[in-house]
């Protein structure tokens, strides 16, 4: 069974933010919601690396574990999705998430948050596939159309890989062999229990 994962090859990532705007474009994500972002570590010094980060769709997802209303579910493709009809915007998933993935629209009162929004691996939500209702709440459902997430498909240097975990791991390993270096798959040991197998 396909097990969808993201892998960001930090030797390739140049912080061009294509993944970020591709995501915005594909899902019409509003200002202030960043389903995907690029973080640069060691900024400005030798060893600087940029990593594109979004929901990693963890196995035994921490967000799902802490959700007070149990609004998460994992698809057969290993994608962690949630129902915005059930979400109450409590913010707990953000505390639990190792990757800062959950985003909340700021609502009127104090720091009170609207329903959580996050990367769906371009696979929509619980509504019927590729429907206006699904699009309105979760954005496009590319997986249902046989396409992979747009962020990875548009990545300028092919740094961001998305797809079946085994395949992208093998692509990555092959790169490491070809070039002779690599700094690992960011987030994998945290996100995937079976990562040691990769």
């Amino acid at each position: 069974m396909a097990r969808m994962k993201f892998l960001c090859d930090s030797e390739r990532c140049i912080e061009c933010n294509a993944c970020v705007t591709a995501c915005k474009n594909e899902h019409e994500v509003p200002w202030g919601i960043n389903r995907r972002r690029v973080v640069t570590i060691n900024d400005g010094t030798p060893g600087e690396r940029s990593i594109s980060m979004a929901c990693m769709h963890c196995t035994d997802a921490p967000c799902a574990a802490v959700c007070p209303v149990d609004c998460f579910y994992t698809t057969a493709d290993g994608v962690v999705l949630h129902s915005k009809d059930l979400c109450i915007g409590c913010g707990y998933c953000f505390y639990a998430c190792p990757f800062g993935a959950p985003q909340y629209p700021q609502l009127g009162n104090f720091g009170s948050r609207g329903k959580m929004d996050k990367c769906t691996f371009c696979s929509g939500g619980p509504e019927d596939d590729v429907t206006p209702a699904e699009y309105e709440k979760y954005g496009a459902n590319r997986l249902a159309e046989g396409k992979l997430p747009l962020c990875a498909e548009m990545c300028s240097t092919k740094a961001l890989l998305a797809g079946d975990g085994d395949i992208i791991a093998s692509i990555y390993k092959e790169r490491v062999v070809t070039r002779g270096y690599g700094t690992g798959a960011w987030g994998w040991s945290v996100a995937y229990k079976d990562a040691s197998a990769a």
Partner: peptide
């Protein structure tokens, strides 16, 4: 308006039929 991209039958239905695992681990379809 945003694209609708008519569903591609071959791919889209496959996933609907797929079972997905709930948080608890017991498979439930959508």
């Amino acid at each position: 308006i945003k694209r609708s991209a008519a569903p591609r039958p071959s791919a889209s239905r496959s996933r609907i039929a797929d079972a997905f695992a709930s948080v608890a681990g017991a498979p439930v379809d959508r």
